[in-house]
Simulated scan of single mutants.
Amino acid sequence: MNTVKYPIMLLVLVLLSGCMFPQSEKAANSLPNDAQLAQVQNAVDKFKQQQSGRLPIKTKPEETPVFQKYQIDFTRLKEAGLLMEIPGTAFENGGYYQYIIIKPETEAKVKVVDLRITEKIREIETKLHFYEEKNQFTPYKERIAPGVYSLDHEKLNLDGPPTVKSPYSGELLPLYVNGSGDVLIDYRKDLNSFLKEYDHSYDTGEDIRYLLTQHSAVAPVYSPPYTIENGEPVFMQQAP
């Protein structure tokens, strides 16, 4: 009897642990839900009110890109008694998302950055910087737009043109590089879909990236500014 009982019990434990582990992983990996975002937004709003307009953010260099610049400092929210627990999806609590603030001067809206995208960008940037140090030039391939270029993936020992999974559609988005050697994500596929799906009043010359944050919790990090021409998303004019 024992020779049958214990293997069965062991099998049950393995199956249970196999079910529970993915759930815990799912909680950390999944996109923050409305309740989590609302909780953090409420804490940020109260902090701003109590601190005469100041925000609970970490200090970043002035040149930090806009969708990475205003990272929420959960410690300050907890010390102020405005947040009891850091969301499980937050990087600070083992999750894959960095909570940020966009439009700090006006709305101060809470959004998130998928740090798995950051990891992918850093992987490509590391290969790129090693190549530049060794060869003294950037392996540009084609000019995509003024100041935006594709990379020669063969010179970087990549299997194909570099891409990253879109946090909006799940499609693969191209990675390009600007004249300074910074790796960029081309969100035109997503922007095109959002322009068609949602009503908007954007005009040529306006930054349409905020259409993405208007209808999603995720911020379009590592993106150049885009505008709209003839109903289509285009890169804003940059230095060649």
Rank of each mutant, 00 (worst) to 15 (best):
residue 6 Y to H: 15
residue 8 I to L: 15
residue 10 L to A: 15
residue 12 V to M: 13
residue 13 L to I: 15
residue 15 L to R: 01
residue 18 G to Q: 13
residue 23 Q to H: 09
residue 26 K to F: 12
residue 29 N to T: 03
residue 40 V to D: 01
residue 40 V to N: 09
residue 42 N to E: 14
residue 43 A to W: 07
residue 46 K to D: 15
residue 49 Q to K: 12
residue 49 Q to F: 08
residue 52 S to L: 14
residue 56 P to N: 09
residue 61 P to Y: 04
residue 62 E to D: 13
residue 63 E to G: 05
residue 68 Q to M: 11
residue 69 K to R: 14
residue 69 K to I: 05
residue 72 I to T: 02
residue 72 I to M: 02
residue 74 F to E: 09
residue 74 F to N: 03
residue 75 T to K: 15
residue 78 K to C: 04
residue 80 A to L: 05
residue 83 L to V: 12
residue 83 L to T: 11
residue 84 M to C: 01
residue 85 E to R: 14
residue 85 E to I: 06
residue 86 I to A: 00
residue 87 P to H: 12
residue 87 P to C: 08
residue 88 G to E: 11
residue 93 N to A: 11
residue 100 I to V: 11
residue 101 I to T: 00
residue 104 P to T: 05
residue 117 I to C: 10
residue 119 E to N: 13
residue 120 K to T: 14
residue 120 K to S: 15
residue 121 I to M: 10
residue 121 I to G: 01
residue 124 I to K: 09
residue 125 E to G: 06
residue 125 E to N: 05
residue 125 E to V: 06
residue 126 T to G: 09
residue 129 H to F: 04
residue 130 F to H: 10
residue 132 E to V: 14
residue 133 E to P: 00
residue 135 N to Y: 08
residue 138 T to P: 01
residue 141 K to D: 09
residue 145 A to M: 10
residue 146 P to S: 12
residue 147 G to P: 01
residue 148 V to D: 10
residue 148 V to H: 07
residue 153 H to L: 05
residue 154 E to M: 05
residue 155 K to Y: 08
residue 156 L to W: 03
residue 161 P to M: 02
residue 162 P to A: 05
residue 162 P to M: 06
residue 166 S to R: 03
residue 168 Y to D: 02
residue 170 G to C: 13
residue 170 G to S: 13
residue 176 Y to S: 11
residue 178 N to K: 07
residue 180 S to D: 12
residue 181 G to C: 09
residue 182 D to G: 10
residue 182 D to T: 14
residue 186 D to C: 08
residue 190 D to T: 06
residue 191 L to F: 06
residue 191 L to K: 02
residue 193 S to N: 14
residue 194 F to C: 06
residue 201 S to Q: 12
residue 201 S to P: 00
residue 202 Y to M: 09
residue 204 T to I: 09
residue 211 L to D: 10
residue 212 L to N: 02
residue 215 H to G: 04
residue 218 V to L: 09
residue 221 V to I: 14
residue 224 P to F: 03
residue 226 Y to K: 10
residue 227 T to W: 03
residue 228 I to F: 09
residue 228 I to T: 07
residue 231 G to Q: 11
residue 233 P to M: 12
residue 236 M to D: 08
residue 237 Q to V: 10
residue 238 Q to M: 13
residue 238 Q to W: 01
residue 239 A to H: 08
residue 240 P to Q: 06
